[in-house]
Design a protein around this nucleic acid. Sequence first.
DNA 1: CATGAATGAGCGTTCATTCAT
DNA 2: GATGAATGAACGCTCATTCAT
Lengths: 193, 193, 193, 193
Amino acid sequence: MKRDKPKYKQIIDAAVIVIAENGYHQAQVSKIAKQAGVADGTIYLYFKNKEDILISVFNEKMAVFVESLQDIIENGSTSKDKLSRMIENHFNVLATDRYLATVTQLELRQSNRDLRLKINSVLREYLQLLDQILIDGMLSGEFNPTMDVRLARQMVFGTIDETITSWVMNDYRYDLIEQVPKVQALILNGIKA
Amino acid sequence: MKRDKPKYKQIIDAAVIVIAENGYHQAQVSKIAKQAGVADGTIYLYFKNKEDILISVFNEKMAVFVESLQDIIENGSTSKDKLSRMIENHFNVLATDRYLATVTQLELRQSNRDLRLKINSVLREYLQLLDQILIDGMLSGEFNPTMDVRLARQMVFGTIDETITSWVMNDYRYDLIEQVPKVQALILNGIKA
Amino acid sequence: MKRDKPKYKQIIDAAVIVIAENGYHQAQVSKIAKQAGVADGTIYLYFKNKEDILISVFNEKMAVFVESLQDIIENGSTSKDKLSRMIENHFNVLATDRYLATVTQLELRQSNRDLRLKINSVLREYLQLLDQILIDGMLSGEFNPTMDVRLARQMVFGTIDETITSWVMNDYRYDLIEQVPKVQALILNGIKA
Amino acid sequence: MKRDKPKYKQIIDAAVIVIAENGYHQAQVSKIAKQAGVADGTIYLYFKNKEDILISVFNEKMAVFVESLQDIIENGSTSKDKLSRMIENHFNVLATDRYLATVTQLELRQSNRDLRLKINSVLREYLQLLDQILIDGMLSGEFNPTMDVRLARQMVFGTIDETITSWVMNDYRYDLIEQVPKVQALILNGIKA
DNA sequence: CATGAATGAGCGTTCATTCAT
DNA sequence: GATGAATGAACGCTCATTCAT
């Protein structure tokens, strides 16, 4: 399996750094190769083309979110607790890795429609897990049972996304983690029964 | 004033159409010129460069939002009422003009970091009016007086933005206006006192 | 009409020179542009892509052959006379322009299958005129009336082509024009009644 | 001797197949290696470089022609008979092996000038045997004793070559062998005493 | 002998912007 | 003011060849 080889990860990590430091449109394949310490051509032994690198970056990093969210769903107690932890985890991961935050919140969105659609389908898995928490909470009476799940999910994700994007756009000037309790409160308030 | 001349508006409108129909990366200056019925060179009599066209598009269209929001603030009764109307108005404008919705929610976000920062500063005026509604509501006791205004604003705007973007990405498959009361409820719930 | 503008001809002529001097695979667009005294991008105002340049070279030059052959058919007396003159003309044109001879006999044949098929369809017009001479001669009793026209044409063209190609491959070491009467004799002998 | 080892022949045969099926420019070394069932690097144990493979293909296949032509010269009766048999043999070999026909008549000609010059020198041996038949016939009075041998050879070879190439380019749509008597007649007519 | 992962030079094409008319 | 022909910098990808194992 290609993705288990060390160079695969090397290139993915290099791509995140190059994109974060240079911006999406200035992240040439040759720059990524150089950063990864391999020849340009080597990139193409592991990735079909440039788009494939970018999708893979998103895939690999999103997998971390999905995995931890699955863990939260399995081990969390109430739905409120799960949702709170999911928010906390989302903020934690991106607060810890500013390169990743820049790439996912700003740079990767500059990709064209096609790539964005592909990225969205990767995101879907994460959002479906979120839906699951919301539905469980509605059934258990923790969340408003009459609300529209899609809208609720968009509110949760939209709030998280806007909050983190603003933080990145403001050059990480304030402490992101500090916002977590307030974000949790806002969101839980919005959907509570 | 250049922006009062007929060709200025012609070019702005042409840009929206061309971007909506071709996507951001296929919206060449020559296409915009053709759509506007002017020569390529003429564009540069009205705009400094391509980026200037795009910012101006956002500026001009955002002005509509700002104006109507000012009107709402002046004529609305309670803060809840104002916020509800602001949400309704935002959805209405974009539901009515799908070209504009595509351009603002999808295409213009593919611009580079610099352009997006400039767009954000255009957006700021709108967000400041939103802040004003929120602060008024906190002072009047309609909204939770202990909440973080910035976060509240990000929740409001993030929810609206995510909702409309999803609608555009799903090819306008469902009725956007129908969502308004539910969005209002979710948001007001989140920030209520 | 693009092909009437001076730069069109400039680029065509530059392409012949560059291909003749550097070989087909070393005839980069930038070299052709430089030789033509225009910018790289200017090429693309007159030609769709590199292949289009090469087909156009063949088209334009082939037109000269076709035109003079039409003239020969109109003004020649007997079919033998017409065929003789056609051979003479073919040799004359290429003996006079060694760049063109190199390009048509050696370099353009290195193009890929697709391009060669397109070149062949340009050649077809010329070969149809040749067929006409042959058929007329068969009907008038000058040429063997029982022969296969396609084969006869292939013999005529194959002989001419091989003769000239050999001359080019041998670096124009001998006088091509001197061969004309002998080639005429060989060919006319082959197909005479 | 490398050329006696089984892998040498394997690679040569693989090259013919790969070139015939994919075209000259799509016949990568790695494809040939795969077809031959060896690793890419192994190719370079038997051939200096890619060009060497192609020349060797031509060499090996041409050897078949030369050998049969030598046989014809030894066992044929008159010069006319030998020339007729040579034509028949040439058509037979290529009509029987369409892969080889495609490779020699179309694909190998896309190689660059240098390679083609080398191929030509391989061809020389064959053409010298042809010259020998022609000279013998001129001396014996069967062929026109005043003709130019080089031209006669070019006529013979040019006709054969053009005939077979046309057949290949027309996707083998008609029966090549059927043409043989007519080609023989045309050629013999052209050079007869 | 045989392998196959790694290398890195090379090029057609686009398009924002200019400027002579 | 208006035109549109001309400019030229910039980059993803392929593939013949090498060499450590």
